[in-house]
Amino acid sequence: NITNLCPFDEVFNATRFASVYAWNRKRISNCVADYSVLYNFAPFFAFKCYGVSPTKLNDLCFTNVYADSFVIRGNEVSQIAPGQTGNIADYNYKLPDDFTGCVIAWNSNKLDSKVGGNYNYLYRLFRKSNLKPFERDISTEIYQAGNKPCNGVAGFNCYFPLRSYGFRPTYGVGHQPYRVVVLSFELLHAPATVCGPKKST
Rank of each mutant, 00 (worst) to 15 (best):
I2K: 13
T3Y: 07
N4T: 12
N4H: 11
L5C: 08
L5F: 11
C6P: 02
F8W: 08
D9Y: 12
D9N: 14
E10C: 05
F12Y: 03
N13K: 05
R16Y: 11
F17V: 04
F17D: 04
A18G: 09
V20A: 06
V20C: 04
N24Q: 14
N24M: 05
N24C: 05
R25H: 05
R25L: 01
K26T: 15
I28H: 01
V32H: 10
V32I: 12
V32Y: 10
D34A: 03
Y35V: 11
V37K: 14
V37F: 15
L38Y: 02
Y39M: 15
N40M: 07
F41D: 07
F44L: 10
F45D: 15
F45C: 13
A46G: 09
F47E: 02
K48I: 05
K48N: 12
P54K: 15
L57H: 03
L60P: 04
C61N: 14
N64T: 13
V65Y: 04
Y66N: 09
S69H: 02
I72L: 12
R73T: 08
R73S: 13
G74V: 03
S78P: 12
I80F: 01
A81G: 07
P82D: 01
G83K: 12
T85G: 07
G86K: 03
N87C: 10
I88K: 02
A89V: 05
Y91R: 05
D98I: 05
D98Y: 06
F99H: 00
G101Y: 00
G101M: 00
C102T: 00
I104V: 09
A105I: 07
A105R: 02
S108A: 11
S108W: 01
N109I: 06
K110M: 09
L111F: 10
K114W: 09
V115Y: 11
V115F: 10
V115P: 15
G116S: 11
G117C: 05
G117S: 09
N118A: 09
Y119K: 15
R124C: 03
R124L: 04
R127F: 02
R127P: 03
K132H: 10
F134W: 08
F134G: 13
F134R: 07
E135V: 05
E135C: 04
R136N: 05
T140C: 09
T140D: 12
E141V: 09
E141W: 05
E141T: 12
E141N: 13
Y143F: 14
Q144S: 11
A145F: 11
A145G: 13
N147P: 14
K148T: 13
K148Q: 13
P149F: 10
C150P: 06
G152V: 07
F156A: 15
N157H: 11
C158P: 06
C158V: 04
L162N: 03
L162R: 03
G166V: 10
F167Q: 04
F167G: 04
R168H: 14
T170Q: 13
T170D: 15
G172N: 14
V173I: 14
G174S: 11
Y178L: 09
R179N: 04
R179M: 03
R179Q: 03
V180N: 00
V181Y: 02
E186W: 09
L187M: 14
L188G: 15
L188D: 15
P191N: 15
A192F: 12
T193I: 08
T193G: 10
T193A: 11
G196V: 10
G196D: 11
G196H: 10
K198F: 13
K198Y: 12
